[in-house]
């Protein structure tokens, strides 16, 4: 009899633990940036753009959802109430890479137009520029 009680208790306990883990999994907060993630691909911003302008479908297959680390020159920094955008573009190019940051994930005080920069973020696709979001600055 005692054995059965212990067994039932163990089953209930394991059930609760699994339940808690499922709950945590289902309602886990989305990261505000990829700061803690390792880059899957490292590439110059201009080369990333070229891959998308050459063949968008192939580039989508290669880069979508990947953490991409791009390097290039800051063309423009803009912000709204909750986000910061850094636009990486070579002066001679028509387009570039648009990097979106959560405001809490970036200190832009030392950054200015013309600076060389390395940024990693999740590639979400190509519109007028290649777009990265959840970005983080990389040293």
């Amino acid at each position: 009899m005692k054995k059965i009680i212990w067994f039932a208790l163990a089953v209930v306990l394991i059930g609760i633990i699994i339940g808690i883990f499922m709950w945590l999994y289902a309602f886990r907060k989305a990261d505000i940036s990829v700061a803690s993630k390792k880059a899957d691909i490292e590439i110059k911003a201009a080369d990333l753009l070229k891959n998308f302008t050459d063949n968008e479908d192939t580039a989508n297959k290669t880069y979508l959802d990947k953490v991409v680390l791009v390097s290039g020159i800051i063309d423009k920094i803009s912000e709204d109430s909750t986000s910061v955008s850094i636009y990486i573009k070579n002066p001679e190019d028509m387009a570039g890479v648009m990097c979106g940051f959560n405001k809490a994930a970036i200190d832009k005080s030392t950054l200015k137009k013309g600076d060389e920069i390395r940024i990693k973020g999740i590639c979400t696709g190509y519109l007028m520029d290649v777009v990265l979001n959840k970005c983080a600055l990389e040293k």
Partner: peptide, 16 residues
């Protein structure tokens, strides 16, 4: 207007 669906950010990761 053009937008990328993957650029939508949700509070809960699984929803996204």
């Amino acid at each position: 207007f053009n937008l990328l669906n993957k650029s939508f950010e949700f509070k809960v990761a699984l929803m996204q």
